[in-house]
Amino acid sequence: MKQQKPVKLVECPRDAMQGMHDFIPTDIKASYINLLLKVGFDTIDFGSFVSPKAIPQLQDTAEVLARLNLDHTSSKLLAIVANLRGAATASMYEEISYLGFPFSISETFQQRNTNSSIAQSVDTVKQLLELSDKNNKTAVIYLSMGFGNPYGDEWNAEIVEQWADQLVGHGARILALSDTTGVSSPEKIKAILPGLLKRYEDVEIGLHLHSTPNTRNEKIQAAYESGCRRFDSALKGFGGCPMATDDLTGNMATEDLIGYLQAKNEPLGLNMDYWQEAVAYSSKVFL
C-alpha cells in the first residue's frame, strides 16, 4: 500500500495583512510572525517583494525579515514576487527558501495582479525557475483563478490541466491551485485535484483557498479526501487578495484546518501553546 505523504501547513500572514488599509507597524508584524515561527508550520508566507504602490502594506518586508528570529524554528520562509526584479531582490536573502509567483489562468487577473499578460508571465516563470536554481531557492507557482474568475474569462478543468502541464514542463516542482475569490466548491475541488495529483506524482500540489466562514469546512474536507497534503491558510481566516475584488474573500482559517486534521489523527507537530499566543497577539495586528 502506498504511504500517505505528510501534511504540510503553510501559514500566510502576508496574505492576511496585505489588504489592510491602515499600515501595521513593522515591529508588530515581526512580533506576530516570530510567534508563528514558534508554532511549527512547515512554511510561513511572510511577505512580498512587490511594488509598494501595488501593496503598500508590505513595503517593509525587508525590515520585517531583519527582525525575525530563525534560530529555533523548523519553519521555512516564503516570499511572493510579481516580477523578476522582485525575485532577484528576494533571492539575495539567504533566510528565504521559497519564491512564490502568482500565475493566473485568467488573462484579466494576470494583467490586474502583475501588470503582464499570461504569455509574458510564462517567460517570467521560466526565468524565475532558473533564478531559483542558481540561488538555492525553490519556486512555488500559484495557479491563480484556478477554480474560476469573476471577469468572464474562459475557465474549465481542461484549461487548468493545460497550464499545469506547461508549468511542470518548464520545471515547476510545487504548484498551488489557488481560489482567489472564493468561487471554489467541493465539487470543483474533487473534479480537478485528484487528476492533477495522480498525473504529477513527483510534483507537490497544494491548495490556496479563499472562503467565507460557512463554506470552509466542506472545502477542507473535499481537499483532504481528494488527496491534498499541502494547505495554505491564515489565522482566523484573515485577509484576501486586494488585486482581485474590493470586497475581500477571507483565507482558509488555520484553526478550522487544524481542527479537521487533528480529528483525522494527522501528526501536525504544532506547539499549540505558541499557537494560542499568536491568536491572542493577532488582535494587535488585525484591528
Rank of each mutant, 00 (worst) to 15 (best):
Q3T: 12
P6Y: 12
V10W: 09
E11I: 04
D22R: 08
F23D: 12
T26R: 11
I33A: 06
L35A: 06
L35F: 07
I55P: 11
Q57K: 11
N69T: 09
T73L: 01
S74T: 15
A87S: 03
S91H: 07
E94W: 06
Y98I: 04
F101Y: 14
T108S: 14
F109C: 10
Q110F: 03
Q110M: 10
S117K: 06
D133C: 11
N135I: 00
T138N: 07
I141A: 04
Y142S: 05
S144T: 12
S144H: 07
G146W: 09
G148Y: 12
G148E: 08
E158T: 15
Q162W: 04
A172W: 00
A172F: 01
A176C: 14
S185F: 11
K190F: 07
A191F: 15
L193F: 12
R199P: 06
D202Q: 13
E204S: 14
T215A: 14
N217E: 07
S233M: 01
K236Q: 02
K236S: 03
C241Y: 02
D247H: 12
T249V: 15
N251F: 01
N251W: 05
A253P: 15
Y260I: 06
Q262C: 08
G269W: 13
G269P: 14
W275G: 11
A280M: 08
S283E: 11
K284R: 10
